[in-house]
């Protein structure tokens, strides 16, 4: 996973100027103990149209606690009872390790498949305390179906590279937003074009988005960045999400990027749709995919 998030995205100015005047220094040892730590159950669950639900559960980590690849597993919740219902059918999810992501343990369904326009209910029971009426709950509705209108391949500054754009016909009244992913043939999984602000609920009509997947900086092909190589087969995946989910992911993108910078006057928690002590998001999404060969 990409753990090299942009922790000091604003600090380059500071760092640069520090070096500039031969001054830069860093004292990492500020005496700091987390005050008022409370345990939260972090929930990340989704149900895509045509697919079974997936739920990941973990615990938050006190800032003062060092965690390595062994102890991080203590923060993964592996013994919860996770139930998904569509109002008629109820299914207890089964679970397995999923080392491709964090938390590396997934609860998944085999019975209920997502359908556009339908509402799904999530219930998480964990430990002795969070059971029955104290269980952690949420609900979400998968947005209505949509279509990818067209894909544009345009030349880049280098002959062998191209830029990609995708056009989607957006109905403003639905109040949906869109997240866009691409998967090049070398990629193990889909990489998102950071939405930041481009999944705007106020957009209407045919909208064209330039694809610029943000790769892992440790990736050797990092410099290739947002371009696509001629001859490559690329999968494009567009998902529609509702306004609650949009809000959550917009804030998440911002929060995680600016997380390293205490100078931003922004300490509001994310807009979770999970009941306490749970925290996170349970969302449905309508999905469209397209595979193209870069010409």
């Amino acid at each position: 996973m990409d753990f090299s998030f942009k922790i000091n995205i604003h600090n380059p100015y500071i760092l640069l100027f520090g070096v500039l005047i031969l001054l830069a220094g860093c004292y990492p040892d500020i005496d700091y103990t987390s005050k008022g730590y409370t345990e939260k159950i972090i929930v990340e669950g989704k149900i895509e149209s045509g697919k079974y639900p997936q739920v990941y559960l973990s615990l938050n980590v006190p800032l003062s606690e060092s965690v390595d690849s062994t102890t991080i597993r203590d923060k993964v919740i592996r013994h919860a009872k996770v139930t998904v219902s569509d109002g008629n059918v109820e299914e207890i999810l089964t679970s397995k390790w999923d080392v491709e992501r964090f938390p590396p343990y997934v609860y998944f369904g085999t019975e209920i498949k997502g359908q556009t326009g339908k509402t799904y209910y999530l219930k998480v029971e964990y430990g002795e305390e969070y059971r029955g009426e104290h269980a952690i709950k949420s609900q979400t509705t998968i947005p209505l179906d949509f279509q990818i209108d067209s894909v544009y391949i345009e030349p880049a500054s280098v002959d062998s590279l191209r830029t990609l754009s995708v056009a989607i016909n957006i109905d403003k009244d639905r109040k949906n937003a869109y997240r866009i992913y691409t998967r090049k043939s070398k990629d193990k999984r889909y990489i998102e074009t950071p939405i930041v602000f481009n999944s705007d609920l106020s957009l209407d009509g045919l909208q064209k988005f330039t694809l610029s997947p943000l790769p892992n900086k440790n990736d050797s092909s990092f410099t290739e960045g947002k371009y696509f190589a001629v001859g490559d087969a690329v999968d494009i995946k567009v998902i529609a999400i509702d306004s609650t989910t949009t809000r959550f992911f917009k804030d998440l993108t911002m929060f995680s990027i600016i997380a390293g910078n205490i100078s931003i006057n922004e300490i509001k928690p994310l807009s979770s749709n999970i009941t306490e002590p749970g925290f996170g998001i349970w969302y449905g999404c309508a999905v469209q995919t397209k595979r193209i060969i870069i010409q």
Partner: peptide
Amino acid sequence: RSWYIIDDKVV
């Protein structure tokens, strides 16, 4: 006071 990971991002 704490951090967590969601959607592959640290918050």
